[in-house]
């Protein structure tokens, strides 16, 4: 197993890693908005339900959630989950949506009440206040926390190896087991560093772009 072969195999595996990463974000970012809206709802039962949901998702290991989504349907309803990638995606999207929801909520709670009041006395509708005044400021406020979470997601994709999704870590483990060489396992770190490096730069850029004002 040459260095080049390992790289080729890892690049193959990166399709799963990156696929899981981007699709999770694609689903979790809007889903987090929904959960956040429920958690901040004035209707008590909805609020209670959302908070319980967040408690369960944040209170159990992601690895366990992946296993539950993968094997739960087969064991409980006798409809086995066929697609490992789909199972991982569902678990990841739900997990990250719960975390995102809490980040959004924190950002919204951090808005001074004067901003709402200013909008109100200026006769702005609730939608205008939320959309034009609150939302852009919340985006800026939560960017650092979101960056943190998104970088964690890159590394968390390795958890999907528990249900044998052939992402980078599982590929490395297979190479180690098959060819009796250990270095590819360590070498995975380079791939994760590259991916998180790109993300770090992206979020730096994003923070800079919203830096034209200070709140």
């Amino acid at each position: 197993m040459s260095f080049a072969d390992v790289n080729i195999q890892f690049l193959e595996a990166a399709k799963y890693t990156l696929g899981l990463f981007f699709l999770t974000l694609l689903i979790a970012i809007p889903l987090g908005v929904v959960i956040c809206a429920c958690a901040m709802s004035r209707f008590r039962p909805v609020k209670w339900l959302a908070n319980t949901f967040i408690w369960i998702i944040r209170g159990t290991p992601l690895m366990l959630q992946v296993i539950v989504v993968m094997y739960g349907p087969g064991l409980i309803f006798d409809v086995p989950m066929k697609n490992r990638f789909l199972a991982a995606l569902i678990a990841f999207a739900i997990n990250y949506a719960a975390y995102f929801a809490e980040i959004y909520r924190g950002g919204i709670m951090a808005m001074p009440k004067g901003q709402y009041e200013a909008g109100k006395v200026l006769g702005m509708s609730k939608a205008s206040v939320n959309g034009l005044v609150i939302f852009p400021q919340v985006v800026k406020k939560i960017t650092p926390a979101m960056g943190n979470e998104v970088i964690t997601l890159v590394k968390d994709t390795s958890i999907a190896n528990i249900i044998a999704l052939p992402e980078i870590i599982l590929t490395a483990k297979n190479i180690v087991a098959t060819y009796a060489i250990i270095w590819p396992l360590f070498y995975t770190g380079v791939f994760y560093l590259l991916m998180s490096g790109v993300l770090t730069l992206f979020f730096k850029w994003l923070e800079k772009r919203t830096n034209y004002y200070k709140a």
């Binding site: 001074p112 004067g114 009041e117 200013a118 005044v133 400021q137 004002y213 200070k214």
Partner: peptide
């Protein structure tokens, strides 16, 4: 007009 101005900072 508020004590703390409450301009929209963005």
């Amino acid at each position: 007009v508020f004590q703390s101005f409450n301009l929209f900072p963005h």
